[in-house]
Design a protein around this nucleic acid. Sequence first.
DNA 1: ACATAATATGAGCCCGCGCTCACATATTCG
DNA 2: CGAATATGTGAGCGCGGGCTCATATTATGT
Lengths: 197, 197
Amino acid sequence: MNAILRATAHILKTKGYAECSTNAVAKKAGVSIGSLYQYFPSKEALITALAEEHAQKARDLMLESIAAAAAQPRSVEEMVRAYIDAMVRLHADDPELHRVLMEQLPGIRVGVLAMQRASNQTAGLVRAWLEAHRSQLRELDVEVATYVLITSVEAVTHLRLMDRPSHLDTETLVDELSELVLRYLGIAPTRKARRRG
Amino acid sequence: MNAILRATAHILKTKGYAECSTNAVAKKAGVSIGSLYQYFPSKEALITALAEEHAQKARDLMLESIAAAAAQPRSVEEMVRAYIDAMVRLHADDPELHRVLMEQLPGIRVGVLAMQRASNQTAGLVRAWLEAHRSQLRELDVEVATYVLITSVEAVTHLRLMDRPSHLDTETLVDELSELVLRYLGIAPTRKARRRG
DNA sequence: ACATAATATGAGCCCGCGCTCACATATTCG
DNA sequence: CGAATATGTGAGCGCGGGCTCATATTATGT
């Protein structure tokens, strides 16, 4: 059962969705198609299960990162960095699978929805945090700001998976996104906060 | 021939890629599959042609907007607004088609590539502009900044096509993205520059 | 040991896809 | 008008997909 999910992930990553037939998955997993259809009633269910699993991991990682950072009171700068860092690490876990699930799935039904729920959850956290720290930020619409921030951070991080630009290593990415977010929030980051190494 | 492209676009938008069979396209276009295959040697060619056409329009709109804005010397604020405005308008033209081409196409080969070339072209313009206006901006890596800016602006604009948030009308979107970009560039926008109405 | 239930198997069904090709129709010449 | 060429037609081929089900294998209970 887990073997089936692993096989699905592998084929999706290496061959793409178009060539990811249920027969191929069964063969790779070392089981018969019959068995496959005992665990997953349809191909859609199979893919959905994989997406769900991946989204679950993402959600967990995000929540625990944020929670850990929020446990002890921190500066705005540190909190923002923690969030961005979590986002980057989230994309670092099985990036190929992440990419396929986000890009190659036909229709919106299957994978994207699962990921969106994860995204919505973080959106809630970010919104609450913005609300709570309003006094330290510039005057802004919390709803809109949440939207802009999450989308931007996610998109830049995500796009780096596709066309890996040589000039954009992980540290620079985190630095730059922090700059983007902090400045957007009306906080010019202090130089010392950057480049911890 | 154009009827075929229009039919393809229509089916893609309403039924999605999975249900966009060449037979269905031919029927919708009012021609026989035979004729379809006289104009387009394969399904891939058909989709590519559609993507190419769309990308061409996008490129044209972007170039002329930028060119028009750059014709007369303007403030940094105005230039940024012009760029963002162009981006928003670009997505406003047949947004459903844009979405499908960007999201639903299997593999990276077909549609995304065409759009990426358009994107790369604007990237060149933005990079050059940043280079030329360095003195007015904060100290930054032009390459990285270009990447971050284009990605963010594109992503936020694009995402609005999917889950149209009721609280994010076009004007707010442009305002907010301007804020994001200008602040990132180290220019706190003046209040008067916003809300022209 | 044997019956009964639970699980695994894979040949093959059906379907719709991309695509072809023998033929029909329209257009352009002398 | 009729030959020659260009263009349009659609039944149907081959293929591979998702999926089923009669059968074989294994696990469980007494």
